[in-house]
Amino acid sequence: RSRTAFTAQQLEALEKTFQKTHYPDVVMRERLAMCTNLPEARVQVWFKNRRAKFRK
């Protein structure tokens, strides 16, 4: 699988949600996936990586 390049709009939506909660539930992730045209699995991995970045 190749690396996913996120658009500015996708990142904005993801970051906005991350500010609200670092652990979105499956419903919220699926809604984000639909809004951003990304698979739910990519949204889940983005949050996992973003939490790791946040802890540093």
Rank of each mutant, 00 (worst) to 15 (best):
F18W: 10
F47C: 01
F6M: 12
L14P: 04
V43Y: 12
F18Q: 02
E30W: 11
Q10N: 03
M34D: 12
Q19I: 04
P39G: 07
E40Q: 10
P24A: 00
L14E: 01
R29C: 13
F54Q: 09
H22T: 07
D25G: 06
K16V: 08
R50I: 06
R29I: 15
L32N: 00
R51Y: 00
A33T: 07
Q44A: 14
T4K: 13
K53L: 15
V27I: 13
R3E: 15
Q9A: 09
Q19F: 05
T7V: 01
V27D: 10
P24S: 03
Q9L: 06
F54E: 15
R50A: 11
F54N: 06
Q19C: 05
N49P: 00
R3Y: 14
R51K: 03
Q10A: 04
H22A: 09
F47G: 00
K48C: 08
A5H: 07
P24K: 08
F54T: 06
F54I: 12
P39W: 02
E40F: 08
W46F: 00
L32Q: 00
L32M: 04
K20E: 12
K53D: 14
K53R: 10
T4E: 15
R29V: 15
P24L: 03
T7D: 04
A41Y: 12
D25A: 00
E30K: 02
R42S: 15
L32C: 01
V26P: 13
R1K: 12
A33G: 14
K16A: 13
V26T: 11
M28D: 11
T36N: 05
F54K: 09
R55S: 13
T21C: 15
K48R: 13
F47E: 00
A13E: 14
F47R: 00
D25Q: 00
E40C: 05
F6G: 04
E15L: 06
E30G: 08
W46Y: 07
H22I: 06
R51F: 03
N37M: 06
V27T: 11
E12H: 03
S2E: 15
A52N: 00
A5V: 11
A8E: 10
Y23N: 07
T21I: 03
F6V: 09
A52F: 07
N37S: 08
F18T: 03
A8C: 03
A13R: 07
R42F: 11
K20C: 08
F54D: 15
K53V: 12
P24F: 03
R42P: 01
K20N: 13
